[in-house]
Amino acid sequence: MDSNINDFPIQNAIKENNINLAKQLILENPKNLYIKDLDDRTPLHWAVSINNTELVKFIIDLKPEVNIDEYVDLSGWSPLHISSSLGNIEILNLFMNMSNPPDINSKTNLGITPLHLSISKNHLSYVRTLINEYGANYKIKDKKGYTPLIRASSIGSIPIVQELLAQKNISVNATDNDGWTSLHHALAEGHGDCAVYLVEKGGVDFNLTNNEDLKPIQVSVDEKVAKYFKDHVDYKIKEIE
């Protein structure tokens, strides 16, 4: 007989924010603590999703030895990935202090790490904690070839770009699967100030071309951004026409 939504009362209670009921059901049915619903999400996934730190602690305290990397949903997201998307450092610390802490560089089905996710959502403090406290790898590419620096540049976050550029041996001119550098992405998304920062502080090469033989300035979102970049970069930009 196929499963249906009524087969997952713990998950349903959490999604409805009925925390007392969820705790009661967990204590009555501890074997169901890590059972997966139709989306392959466990009660811990949902506790993280509603950003309830206290409930997350309640769940992991019952089985602190569990390897949460083994519990991923249909998209390959573990509870750590959800936490990283939300930027909840308290939950991150709870996970990393488990007796069997998760892999800080674990990947989703799309090759996305917790660092990628926290950067995409502009969670600066979380990013710093991942890198400086837990040693997250800031060079990993996802399946599109995006590095953390490329993701930070695409959202125009100078503070996160600054944090990444401060790391040892970071490849400032790394390219994605289409040959785009972080500078291509910054200009294409209209982040002229971030693009200038990448060149002046990061030493990113503004003459590198992508797979279509286009330089970063040539993929600028509009002429205003291109002009801003030309006017503020303290280098002689070669004529590209």
Rank of each mutant, 00 (worst) to 15 (best):
I112K: 12
I112T: 14
T113W: 01
H116E: 11
N100W: 00
N100I: 02
N88E: 12
N100P: 01
P79Q: 07
N122Q: 13
S84M: 12
G111T: 06
K121N: 15
N122A: 11
G87M: 08
L110H: 08
S118N: 12
Y126P: 13
T108F: 02
I89S: 14
S118P: 11
S125L: 15
L117H: 07
P114F: 03
L86P: 11
E90A: 12
S84T: 09
L110I: 01
E90L: 08
N109Q: 01
E90D: 13
I82N: 08
D103Y: 00
P102Q: 04
N109K: 06
T108C: 01
N109G: 10
E90T: 01
S85Q: 14
I112Q: 12
S85H: 13
T113H: 09
E90G: 04
K107M: 07
S120L: 15
K121T: 15
N122K: 14
M98D: 01
S78W: 01
L86V: 12
S85F: 14
L94N: 04
S85L: 13
L92K: 00
G87T: 11
S85R: 14
Y126E: 14
M96R: 00
H116F: 13
I82R: 04
L117E: 15
L80V: 03
L80G: 02
H116A: 03
I104M: 06
N122V: 06
M98P: 01
H123V: 09
F95Y: 09
G87E: 10
S78M: 07
I104G: 06
S78E: 05
P102C: 00
H116Q: 11
S99K: 09
P101Q: 00
S83K: 07
N97W: 00
L94Q: 07
L80K: 04
I119G: 12
N109E: 05
P79I: 05
P114T: 04
I112L: 11
E90Q: 13
S85D: 12
M98G: 02
Y126H: 15
S78C: 04
P79A: 02
L92R: 05
E90M: 02
L124F: 14
S78L: 06
S78Q: 07
M96V: 02
S125A: 15
L117F: 11
S99Q: 08
S106A: 07
S118E: 15
